Computed example of a mutant assay.
Amino acid sequence: MRLRFPPYFLHFVVVFLLTIISTNSSAQVDKLGQITGGAAYEIPSWFTDSFLDIAEDVEDAMDENKSVLLYFHLDNCPYCSSMLDQNFKSGDNLAFIQKHFSVIAVNLKGDREITLNENEALLEKELSKILKVQYTPTIIFIGEDGKQAFRTNGYRTPKAFRLVLEYVASQSYKNTTLSDYVESNQKSSKGYTFIDYSGLEKASYLQDYKQPVAILFEDKDCIDCKNFHEKLINRDDVKAELKQYLFIRFDAYSDQKIINFDGKVTSPRKMVKDFDLNYRPGVLLFNEGKNITKIDGQLYSFHFNTVLRYVSGKHYEDFPRFGDYLKVRQQEMLEQGIDINIVD
């Protein structure tokens, strides 16, 4: 016996199914994660109003007994906002910066043309890519010859940044590393005491080690190490990412013998020099015996975790620039309904 349904019943079924589909689609949209923590900011009015001709800017700065400081920034970057507020708009470093430096802002994704010399001109975003600017703010100090004299990658607290400013203003970069400069100039007997961390292992023989390795460098003069332990690597989400690594720590001032990944003898002091790791706590990240990147400034958990994942997951094979992977990872999390607080 064949069942027969009135036309209005079929209409009801169609409407019902469309309602379910529509409801599910709405639910999918509602589940998208949200990004919070971005910070709008303005570049200080006292920054040099430059035509972005670096050679001319260097000459003008020298006439005032100053050096050129290029401030690479990104719109809505909370690290950039904090560093501007704490150093370039107010704070103990403001007067020192204004006395010794001619500061020029460069937008990481900007389209203004920068003249490097009479034969070469690039857009801001092109120069940022060539200089491999991955973290903002990146600060590049230009020497008298118009070339990079020193560089910092990422946010630094005012006290840590002051050491950099004094190092560059005194032109100590010409004959010593920042690490050696700080070690010889910090006279306080009360320094940082290394903090125990359960996830740290001991290893000094790394030859032929192919798994992900994170090497943490601290020293007795470290200003930001306590915060690194208490507010970052003791988080459960960070611990989960670090479990993918052989996580070891060295004293950056130590001459301890280390056999590196290619079997050569080195030391912590030599490693921080060879890899130009000028921030404490600094982290070198390796996979398959190769240095993939470094963490040379203060990061919040989202960016820190993403760098760790970038290396341990070998995402650098598909994304040579970390910034490109960061965008993909961010979108992946949002589509999974995960909220991202970039200053958490």
Rank of each mutant, 00 (worst) to 15 (best):
F5M: 11
F5R: 10
F5G: 08
P6L: 14
Y8W: 04
F9A: 09
V13K: 04
L17P: 02
T19P: 07
I20F: 13
T23H: 12
A27C: 10
L32P: 00
A40P: 07
E42L: 09
S45E: 15
F47S: 10
V58D: 13
M62Y: 10
D63C: 14
V68S: 01
Y79E: 05
D85V: 05
S90M: 01
N93E: 03
L94K: 11
Q98D: 00
S102C: 14
E113W: 01
I114M: 01
L116H: 00
E118Q: 04
E118L: 14
N119E: 09
E120W: 13
A121K: 02
S128I: 06
I130D: 10
I130E: 14
K132T: 09
I139F: 08
I142P: 07
A149E: 12
R151Y: 00
Y155G: 06
R156V: 00
A160Q: 03
V168S: 10
V168H: 12
A169E: 02
T176Q: 12
D180K: 00
D180M: 00
V182I: 00
E183T: 00
S184C: 02
Q186V: 14
T193E: 11
S198V: 08
L200V: 13
K202C: 04
Y205K: 12
Y205H: 04
Q207T: 05
P212N: 00
L216V: 08
E218C: 07
K220D: 03
D221Q: 10
I223H: 12
F228S: 11
F228L: 08
H229R: 04
K239V: 04
A240F: 00
L242K: 08
Q244M: 07
L246Q: 09
R249W: 02
F250R: 13
I259A: 06
N260Q: 01
F261V: 05
V265L: 15
V265S: 15
S267K: 11
D274W: 06
L277N: 04
Y279L: 06
G282E: 04
G282L: 05
G282C: 02
G289I: 10
I292S: 01
G297F: 12
G297I: 03
S301H: 13
H303G: 11
N305S: 05
K314S: 09
K314M: 05
R321H: 06
M333P: 11
E335A: 02
